[in-house]
Design a protein around this nucleic acid. Structure first.
Lengths: 162, 162
DNA sequence: CATGAAAGAAATTCGAT
DNA sequence: ATCGAATTTCTTTCATG
């Protein structure tokens, strides 16, 4: 399920174009790649079914929705046992403030990216949803000054390892 | 530009639906929300122009593209001055391995999420692109065991702060 | 697998309200 | 601002190579 998939140059070209603009039409893709629109549809359908393309996500601006402050929370969960971390993960994922959650190596077990209205809202979140929980041993809060999207996962010209 | 935007219940309903499925048609949105498809188009166009909707992103599975290992790099840049960090940020953004970049408060100035093939690839990346740079004072590498998407930024029923 | 033509569906325009 | 009908454009199917 997580194994590499065979991708030919047409697939790679299509993926690069869709990473630049996920709303490209099959007609546009076809014109750029040099195949028929129906072939593009076929390729994209296959890429979706094979799991290379996971889906389309709408990107919203949190600041425009009254969530102008973002932070990363480094969380230690103790004891770090399955029966505790399962519910912890699900609870954090369900918080409306949560944007992403990582299970990490290193001194902090989890990293949570959150979007909140202001520092008071952040304080409430940390106190009520994290430090007040018995399984949470420690929370370190780091504000996000700025964030950047990076280039496409498949940069132009890079081959894919088989 | 980062100020909150006035959103009425129709806008919120549309945003919630599009967060669940960014590929919903205006016809589908219209049926759910209770307005005409052309009105939905109008609303969504407006939401895009006002910056609430930033765009659509294609989500790819890094593992299927030969990048089965992800990590977070906590980076100290010294001295932390504008003439150094501008180029640093642009260089990191341009790396094909980079997925996201944050400027943070706290002891580490930057956090970089990277996707690589394996630990050897990660070692090469850290040594060649980070620790070998003069402006990089320290890099702490943490592997990502697992990551989760979180719920929508706009959960059902939540009002938006004005 | 890829194609082009045809059919079906969606996006978009626009005059009216 | 919204509507709905008309138009344009896209998506999808499918018989064929």
């Amino acid at each position: 399920m997580a194994d590499s998939v065979a991708l030919d140059p047409v697939d790679l070209h299509i993926l690069r174009l869709l990473q630049n603009d996920a709303r490209s039409t099959y007609r546009e893709l076809a014109a750029e790649v040099g195949v028929a629109p129906s072939t593009c549809l076929d390729r994209v359908t296959r890429l979706r079914r094979s799991g290379v393309i996971l889906g389309d996500q709408l990107r919203l601006d949190p600041a425009k929705l009254g969530r102008g402050l973002q932070a990363l929370l480094l969380v230690q969960v103790r004891p770090h046992r399955r029966e505790l971390i399962g519910p912890f993960v699900e609870r954090v994922r369900a918080l409306p403030e949560s944007r992403a959650l990582f299970h990490l190596t290193g001194p902090d077990d989890y990293l949570v990216q959150v979007a909140v209205a202001d520092t008071a809202d952040l304080q409430r979140l940390v106190l009520d949803e994290f430090t007040s929980r018995r399984e949470v041993a420690r929370v370190e809060t780091r504000l996000i000054f700025q964030q950047w999207d990076c280039g496409p996962l498949l940069p132009p010209g890079e081959p894919v390892r088989p």
